[in-house]
Write a protein that binds this DNA or RNA. Sequence first.
DNA 1: TATATGTGCAACCAATTGATTTCGCAATAG
DNA 2: CTATTGCGAAATCAATTGGTTGCACATATA
Lengths: 106, 106
Amino acid sequence: MRRDIFQAIADPSRRAIIALIALQAMTPNAIAEHFDTSRQAVSKHLRILTECELVKPEQRGREIYYQLEINKMKEIDKWLDQFRKIWEKRFTQLDTLLSTLKKPKK
Amino acid sequence: MRRDIFQAIADPSRRAIIALIALQAMTPNAIAEHFDTSRQAVSKHLRILTECELVKPEQRGREIYYQLEINKMKEIDKWLDQFRKIWEKRFTQLDTLLSTLKKPKK
DNA sequence: TATATGTGCAACCAATTGATTTCGCAATAG
DNA sequence: CTATTGCGAAATCAATTGGTTGCACATATA
């Protein structure tokens, strides 16, 4: 029952929702209109996204606008850091190798 | 049945496996010893990781070493780009706001 | 050759997931 | 007040998931 952000973005529908509301907060109905799915299905996804704080609801009259918590996305970025170190290192090694091959003299 | 990388990293066990073999390729048995789980369970995770090309098996005698395909991780990084643009923009806006508040005289 | 070891794979099972349907509630409109 | 609209929550269902168990097979070792 514990939600984490990685599980949240695992579903393609949720990634689509995230991308959609990234620039502008939207209501569940408005979101559902963009996809071939029911309002309730979207609502369920929004519940999951809200639970892991990737999205924040904001009541405006009887409508609820859902906004992306962009800062939460940084957690993924942070997780990637451990691998980023590795691929940058490999790139540097490759770079060194290439320049060694390019100037074989000396 | 279609695997993608986001589903692959959704599972905590798989993230742990990825992190473990990031620096050094390992056999299924060796990996399983690091966790409180069976060899077969690890093998299943490796199958999923291999299917989406996040991991590559390398036969050495009767052992199979699994190595992380670090380049595949960049796909996540690439997906994050669309949001990175946004949070950098927000940061700049905040920065502008703060500097405006700091020097109200002019 | 016989035995032990490292592995993948299929069968099976409980738990979870994503979607639909139905309902109830609150805010707005008539 | 009554009807409509926007919404969340519960019930339900098929499909998927992660795990275990039991095999089969190939490579080493005795």
